[in-house]
Write a protein that binds this DNA or RNA. Structure first.
Lengths: 255, 255
DNA sequence: AAGTGGTCTAGACCACAAC
DNA sequence: TTGTGGTCTAGACCACTTG
């Protein structure tokens, strides 16, 4: 596995190959992450160990890990090692939530309060099934909840999850969990959300939605449809959120 | 400049220092970019030349350029060289515009049509001045325009620019330019927008806004307030946009 | 003191583009 | 053929963390 990128030594069994060595290494590490060889929050082997395992130089492993770190799949800590990224950390809670108070100080308003309205097992309609790469009629979990920020109901979310990986999820489970929902998905179901796509629109609520958020039916709201994926871009959650934007706004940094 | 990161050799005069060598090199290259030593679209010196100029190894220059490329400040092209990033390219037009048709195929609807409604010189109020890091009463340019996508008026934008760097900008100038506005800012005023922040809300239009967009006053719209910055995070443009989201949506990728 | 990631170097070779 | 960026290696040393 030293010189030719297209070689397939014992260390790189079924890599289709014709990519740089460090890309192959990256793929191998990714497979170990996906297979759960190292769990979220855990320490992965040192660069030197991985270099020995894959029969490449430390620099090549480094470049592979650099890319994984850039994609937020692992976190490097000098002097300690490299850790599998996790949602279950105090610092980076709500990593995917871009709604921030207009004051800018998200910490001042304290943690969000969650109220789970329902969590039931249903059959996917064509729309939901297509988004989650399932077949129409497959079992999915459907949940609805309200998040209150600074005591004010601000976010109404409908969530759909594939039934298979999330078997056994109940409203109690969702409600009682202290931290972010994605942390629970990791700890309870071994599903780590890696990236997500959001489609944002301005809409008016129906009467039920308006009631739940404590606004009237003429209040414009942000509609945020999020498709969250685990490793290899496998869709694992569809979420349709309605955000009040009278005291908060959706923040996005472009570069 | 070889071993000690805090050294200040002739090649690195006023770097405050105590950062890795490659960071110092990055800062030096950044200064040359800002000073206009190499203009947008131009070829910068090769890694070997820069390594010689700064008295460091090619690998160190490479790492500096890697970061600049990751921030979209330069573009690498294998076999050709490294170029200063520019908005004036066919491929990456509207790099900051995240509104895409629901069909997903942005190319199908063709280029946006622009109608410039006004472009006048005014005095900044406290709000505008604060955003642009000016003083209240300073001269600013204020423009308003409508963008039509697939023939339908979809975006209404109010734009504020600091008067000094954009002296001489007229409505004709804005209207006649073939490509994106940021390309014109580069070519005509030497101002390159490097990054931007957006605050997004759902709002209802006032009657004038509704008329310009061809909707009624009860149609919820996306309010997108963008602050665009040039090098070193210097704010250079405030833009308040209203987006129709009946056939388009704002797309955002989270990772 | 030992182990980790972080930086820096020097040299080899590969892949791509232009002449 | 030449020059560019891209990959890979090997070894040195630095900075941080832990025992």
């Amino acid at each position: 596995m030293a010189q030719t990128p297209s070689s397939s030594s014992a260390a790189a069994p079924q890599t289709p190959a014709f990519s740089p060595l460090y890309q192959q290494i990256k793929t191998l590490i990714l497979q170990s992450l996906q297979a759960g060889e190292w769990k979220p929050g855990e320490l992965i082997p040192s660069e030197i160990e991985l270099a020995a395992r894959f029969r490449v130089s430390q620099g090549t492993v480094r470049k592979a890990i650099d890319e994984l770190a850039a994609e937020n799949l692992v976190v490097r800590r000098q002097g300690k090692g490299t850790f599998v990224a996790t949602h279950a950390e105090q610092q980076v809670q709500y990593r995917f939530l871009r709604l921030v108070p207009d004051s800018g100080d998200a910490r001042a308003e304290g943690p969000a309060q969650r109220r789970v309205l329902e969590c039931k097992r249903v059959r996917a309609n064509a729309d939901i099934a297509r988004c989650l790469a399932l077949r129409t009629g497959d079992a999915v979990l459907q949940a609805r909840r309200v998040l209150s920020l600074a005591g004010v109901p601000t976010i109404l979310e409908d969530i759909w999850l594939p039934g298979q990986p999330f078997k056994g999820l109940t409203a109690e489970r969702m409600a009682q969990y202290p931290g972010a929902t994605y942390a629970m998905f990791e700890l309870e179901f071994g599903v780590r959300m890696v990236r997500a796509d959001e489609k944002i629109r301005a809409v008016l609520p129906d009467s039920e939605q308006a009631t739940l958020l404590g606004v009237d039916a003429h209040t414009p709201l942000l509609s945020v449809e999020r498709l969250a994926c685990t490793y290899h871009d496998t869709p694992m959650e569809l979420r349709r959120g309605l955000y009040r934007t009278d005291t908060h706004h959706y923040h996005n940094a472009l570069s």
